[in-house]
């Protein structure tokens, strides 16, 4: 589904990603782990199409197409979703209002009729329940006055509504207490499917206790230095990134 080859990315003239190779098939869950500043969020933003991230070398192919050529909304229409580490608040734009516009834009792209208000609200209730997002929050302005945990639930609620093929989840676990973490992990496990791939970006291993990844990559200083199975995550937790780094670059 997703194939990243030799990806080099500069931000403000500084090289952040220094040759990433990564391939994810439909139905797989991959985790990318790495210390702060290793380039994890940069990778997430490049996949979603944020401006200011210059690809100087390499390619990203998604469902056989050049992802980097596409606008952020075109990527969304093709099924790419980014769960933000720090979801922005948008006062004056209500959650359900913008999601309805978003969902119907995607449905149009996929050749489906738009959902009417009643069907939309029914779907919204069902998906909000998945991450225990209070109904009242779905009607408020996007992330406006939301707690850290509520913002993250809102991300997964939106993901559930939009049903992406590829979900890139950038530190969805950061700032969550253990109960909220379990809720979100349960929600994500429900959303696992043979047609859907997930790329979970995280600093810590604990989310991976609940969402067991098929593949774990270790990203350090803009490069994937190790790839393994779920046990690699456990080893990282026990030994720390320094050990892994030293093992690579003695």
């Amino acid at each position: 589904m997703l194939k990243i080859e030799d990806l080099h990315v500069e931000v403000d003239g500084k090289l952040i990603l220094k040759g990433i190779d990564l391939e994810i098939q439909a139905g797989e869950v991959h985790a990318i782990m790495g210390p702060n500043g290793s380039g994890k969020s940069t990778l997430a933003y490049v996949l979603a199409g944020r401006e200011g991230y210059e690809v100087t070398k390499g390619s990203v192919t998604y469902k056989g197409r050049d992802l980097l050529e596409m606008s952020p909304e075109a990527r969304a229409a093709e099924g790419v979703f980014l769960g933000f580490q720090y979801p922005v608040a948008i006062p004056g734009v209500s959650n359900v209002y913008f999601l309805k516009a978003a969902l119907n834009a995607l449905r149009k792209h996929r050749g489906k009729d738009p959902l009417d208000a009643i069907d939309f609200m029914k779907l919204s209730k069902e998906k909000a329940a998945l991450v225990q997002l209070p109904d009242e929050l779905t009607k408020r302005s996007v992330n406006d006055g939301f707690s850290g945990g509520e913002k993250k639930r809102n991300e997964i609620y939106q993901m559930a509504m939009l049903e992406p093929s590829l979900a890139v989840l950038d530190e969805t676990d950061s700032g969550l207490d253990i109960d909220a973490l379990k809720v979100i992990a349960d929600g994500l496990n429900t959303l696992r499917s043979p047609e859907r791939a997930m790329l979970i970006i995280t600093h810590y291993q604990r989310l991976l206790d609940y969402i067991v990844p098929d593949v774990v990559h270790v990203l350090i200083d803009g490069q994937i230095v190790r790839t393994g199975d779920k046990d690699l995550a456990k080893r990282l937790e026990a030994e720390g990134y320094a050990e892994v780094r030293d093992a690579i670059q003695p």
Partner: peptide
């Protein structure tokens, strides 16, 4: 710009 990007990642045309 960050609000604009957020909406666009959800599929809202620019």
């Amino acid at each position: 710009e960050s609000q604009l990007f957020y909406l666009r990642t959800r599929g809202i045309p620019e």
